[in-house]
């Protein structure tokens, strides 16, 4: 597979064109916004938390396929999870994005293997300037969860 095919996997283009959970939440939730000033990517998230669990979330934003697909996949990955699980997932995602090239990213012992669709984003590592695109949604989520923690 060429580097470009690895970057633009079908699942990424699918999430880009059909983002999951696009919109805003009614009812109690925390809200956070993030952007990459150098490229103009924007992302905002609403997260509803009950009893230490993400019960619902919604995203809005505009930007490249990587930033928006990463956000959409994140929605799929975090809704219904406990905050501890989400924190673990975030760490695993960040680890995946920083694994050196050449290491086997699909090794079952590798963090990538539990990430589901998100694994498709590992192609981004070969394009260092694009890693911040994939990270944007996750950084915004972390902001939201920090707010929630402060408020509780």
């Amino acid at each position: 597979m060429s580097q470009l095919d690895e970057l633009y996997r079908e699942v990424i283009l699918d999430h880009y064109r059909n983002p999951r959970k696009r919109g805003t939440l009614n009812g109690a939730h925390v809200h956070a916004e993030g952007n990459n000033p150098s490229c103009g990517d924007e992302f905002s998230i609403d997260v509803a938390i009950e009893d230490g669990k993400i019960t619902d979330a919604a995203m809005q934003g505009q930007g490249c396929s990587i930033s928006q697909a990463s956000g959409s996949m994140m929605m799929d990955a975090i809704i219904g999870k406990s905050l501890a699980e989400v924190s673990d997932l975030t760490t695993k995602f960040k680890t995946m994005m920083t694994i050196e090239e050449g290491e086997n990213p699909v090794d079952p012992d590798r963090p990538g293997s539990v990430l589901g669709d998100l694994e498709a984003l590992q192609g981004v590592r070969k394009f260092p300037v694009r890693i911040k695109c994939a990270d944007l949604a996750w950084a915004t989520l972390s902001d939201a969860l920090e707010q929630a923690e402060k408020a509780s």
Binding site: L7, C39, I66
Partner: peptide, 19 residues
């Protein structure tokens, strides 16, 4: 998106600005 265009062009050695 413009960034995706720039990345794809860059693979062929073509430098454009995106953003």
């Amino acid at each position: 998106h413009a960034h995706d265009i720039a990345t794809i062009l860059d693979q062929d050695g073509i430098a454009v600005r995106a953003g």
